[in-house]
Design a protein around this nucleic acid. Structure first.
Lengths: 110, 110
DNA sequence: CCTATATATGAATGATTGTTCATATGATAA
DNA sequence: TTATCATATGAACAATCATTCATATATAGG
């Protein structure tokens, strides 16, 4: 008996797929959401902008750990920051963050 | 000079945060989207349900690798499957998958 | 029964990643 | 300047994870 064939299906699907580079960017973005610490940071920023040491205190984690994660979040353009004297305040970059997290919450609460 | 104080802010924010368990579930969900192979599989299933070997052929990866990833996707309830003789067809579980990926795409294309 | 095809799975491995620790930079006040 | 607070960063380590390989299960046909 012949092997399973799906050349027709494959050519259809291939045409619809974005470039590898774009898909890699997309999965990298979701990776940033894929960590409890970062999710907590984002959720905290829903309420208001916060300085690094406040976030560290809130999550009961070291300032260093938070700083490293904020760097990732900033690189992914999910947060922005502004300096005021010694302290640096971080805030949500835009509404996509809320919407993405909302959709995620909808999925797990079923 | 005194140390920076933010007890007021912290109590406000703490009240709004979901339970740790829920946030862990959420980050686990996004972790599943945080891999190029799995994103490609989901995107392929946008078009139509597909059997394991068709997906493997499409992504030019081994059947084993795809099968392992499908297991993760199924566990996260992002895909479902049905058996028809020897072949098993996988399909998107619901519309949240599309919406989450759409929001992600919107964010990176700016 | 035996063979072939399709899929699943456990163990091993190499790569990635989150946190810690030590330290560096930046900013303010005395 | 010196001291202190706030933040950033590089290196190291432990833990997690995606793929491969070998093998097991499942279904169909002869």
């Amino acid at each position: 008996m012949k092997k399973h064939d799906h050349t027709k299906l494959l050519s259809d699907v291939t045409g619809q797929m974005p470039a590898d580079e774009e898909l890699a960017e997309l999965s990298e973005l979701f990776s940033v959401f894929g960590d409890t610490t970062r999710i907590k940071i984002l959720w905290a920023l829903f309420e208001s902008e916060m300085c690094v040491c406040a976030i560290a205190e809130l999550l009961k984690m070291t300032q260093s750990a938070i700083s490293h994660q904020l760097k990732l979040l900033k690189h992914a353009k999910l947060v922005g920051c502004r300096r005021e004297g010694k302290t640096v305040y971080y805030y949500l970059a835009d509404d996509h963050v809320r919407r993405i997290i909302d959709q995620g919450m909808e999925h797990i609460s079923e």
